[in-house]
Design a protein around this nucleic acid. Sequence first.
DNA 1: GAATAATTTTGAGCGTACTCGGTTATGAGT
DNA 2: ACTCATAACCGAGTACGCTCAAAATTATTC
Lengths: 205, 205
Amino acid sequence: MPAESRTPGRRERNKQEKLDRITSAARELFSEYGVDEVTTQQIADKADVGTGTLFFYAKTKAELLLLVHNVKYAEAIDSGVTAAGATAGILDAVMAIVQPIVACNRVQIENGRTYLRELVFGDPDEHHHKVGLELTGRVDDAIAAILSRDGDRNEQDAAQLARIISAIMFINMTATVFMSLSDDSVIGNIRDQVRTLLGAHRVGV
Amino acid sequence: MPAESRTPGRRERNKQEKLDRITSAARELFSEYGVDEVTTQQIADKADVGTGTLFFYAKTKAELLLLVHNVKYAEAIDSGVTAAGATAGILDAVMAIVQPIVACNRVQIENGRTYLRELVFGDPDEHHHKVGLELTGRVDDAIAAILSRDGDRNEQDAAQLARIISAIMFINMTATVFMSLSDDSVIGNIRDQVRTLLGAHRVGV
DNA sequence: GAATAATTTTGAGCGTACTCGGTTATGAGT
DNA sequence: ACTCATAACCGAGTACGCTCAAAATTATTC
């Protein structure tokens, strides 16, 4: 059958299809019940595979969350980068990046916190973990680019300030103290801290 | 027996003695093998109590680590605060606080990381968790006090900058990327970031 | 197309943190 | 002294993430 030249074989297709089922099952269960309330057994059942198969596709439950959440996170970053490009002020542009990320991570607070926890404390050798770290790298780069709009600032400082802003975001999205706050309050807190960081207070504002 | 007026009863004493045994057992096992390599059963055995009893005194394994590590952390903070008091420059004084904390948390890197993880993601209603959060509060206050030495800086900014410095410390002590670094490298990284932070809006350095 | 190799699938089983119902020790009331 | 309520203690049992050795499926070779 040379007509179907680009069929990568049944095995490959089955594998992809199975991964899709697992991904969907995990996404739906996680977003409906929260990662802690879902067992790997439930995911396996919903995906209609054995538990062994589940862990053949994702080495840990955490990897499953990363796999699912990375997609949403990437979308949030893209929309933020786009918005930042159309924003004049440096602080406002930074916040244009921050805002969708915070929103994304707080759609389901428990999942968002767990995602960030795994990103920092999980095994960096796992595939989806690496992908997640690349995403945070993109955020750092995007923020550094914005800060570099200020001609007085050298690139090295911009990169370092970007990392600091990421740290500020992380703490404000994870610390239990902030769990009961509204999204707007969290964003407000981050904005205040970034403003202080950038030294806006000296000029006036 | 009115002579021993302040004896709080056998029950109280037994309880205290048992808690001591548990604390010692946990401390020794954790520091020798690392928190992940020690089972709660081993701790119970070494303390010579049943597992049920163990969890009567500490609600989770994480609480056990907090219980043990809070003591060391408190010592590190005290020594840092003392050293900072005798240090002239603001950056140097801040680093005098940072240095012993980093050292303490990296005596056994796995335990230090887990400690910080639980501090951020654990149940804030548990007793030892609260104690731990108070300690980080003390660090923030101490740093804020140092920053306030600069007469130009108002207290609100000092407090906020202190929180940012804590965030910088946290990331540098927890992120997997930094696990393979030496203590000095980590401290150097933190110093660079704090310098950038404090100098972000200034012209020179 | 048979034989062989490679990959994928599976669920019973394991280790471990933690629970729970029953038991025992302690001290207050009389 | 005796009773009784309460606090402390215990370990068998549970839940759940994850492993592993064997089985099933797919690819490859001759």
